[in-house]
């Protein structure tokens, strides 16, 4: 099947043509384009290879998150048959651009540090919410949730679903004052800035039940106001 691939480069579209199977993922298309030497756009002009990131190629690592036809997705699990024949690829816009489709997601990691999302000391396993803890820990920190979020800008104190999700597991594994401190961080950097559009849950490649995690933390926060241990 013939189609075109347009890549946003320095604010402008660069378009390539190619022929792919319906089952070909966008990652394979990008590799194929970069193997063209020289790489020519549809107008026959020679252009530099495309900068993009890939690691696992199978929806586990989050490296290849980008905006595909207007929606943040992973390139490795977006196929030509569904996204083609004319595919538009843009970098995630909420992170500093490195080049082409490659962005610097360090700020997301810094957010988790600012929220002090770690265990100060060893904890006993808590299994009441074990499935939710598992789901929370499956976050790839790909950034799709932040890209779609109407409230997250990359600046300010609202850290979006990525921060709230990571906060859930830590808070759920802690007790007492340490737990309350993390729930405060959730309120400060998450809940207070969230307008509950819940678009994050719609685009999460791991299908993490973000709305459930957020409501659990809200519940715990209210309980913690009344019950002290």
């Amino acid at each position: 099947m013939k189609g075109t691939i347009s890549v946003k480069r320095d604010g402008k579209w660069v378009t390539f043509s190619g022929e792919y199977e319906a089952t070909t993922p966008v990652t394979v298309i990008l590799s194929e384009l970069n193997s063209r030497d020289p790489l020519l756009d549809v107008k026959g002009r020679e252009v530099e290879p495309i900068e993009w990131e890939c690691s696992c190629g199978q929806k586990v690592c989050g490296a290849c998150a980008m905006v595909i036809n207007g929606t943040p997705r992973l390139a490795c699990s977006t196929f030509f048959g569904e996204a083609g024949p004319d595919i538009r690829l843009e970098p995630l816009s909420k992170f500093p651009l490195i080049a082409d489709l490659k962005v610097d997601r360090t700020q997301m990691y810094d957010s988790l540090s600012e929220m002090k999302l770690w265990l100060d000391e060893g904890v006993d396993a808590k299994v009441r919410n074990i499935d939710l803890q598992y789901a929370s820990a499956s976050c790839m920190l790909c950034g799709c949730c932040l890209e779609i979020c109407p409230n997250y800008t990359g600046r300010g104190k609202f850290f979006g679903a990525a921060g709230m999700n990571a906060c859930f597991r830590i808070a759920d594994q802690l007790d007492g004052a340490a737990k309350r401190a993390r729930l405060k961080e959730f309120a400060r950097h998450g809940d207070s800035g969230c307008s509950k559009s819940l678009s994050c849950g719609q685009v999460c490649p791991q299908n993490i039940p973000l709305a459930v995690l957020i409501s659990r933390m809200n519940r715990d926060r209210i309980i913690s106001r009344f019950i002290r241990d």
């Binding site: 586990v60 988790l112 540090s113 999302l117 770690w118 499956s138 976050c139 990571a166 830590i170």
Partner: peptide, 17 residues
């Protein structure tokens, strides 16, 4: 793998901070 990386990365975050 994901569960181990997430937890060890969490621990690492403390040392980074």
């Amino acid at each position: 793998g994901m569960q181990l990386v997430t937890a060890i990365m969490t621990e690492l975050r403390r040392y980074q901070a």
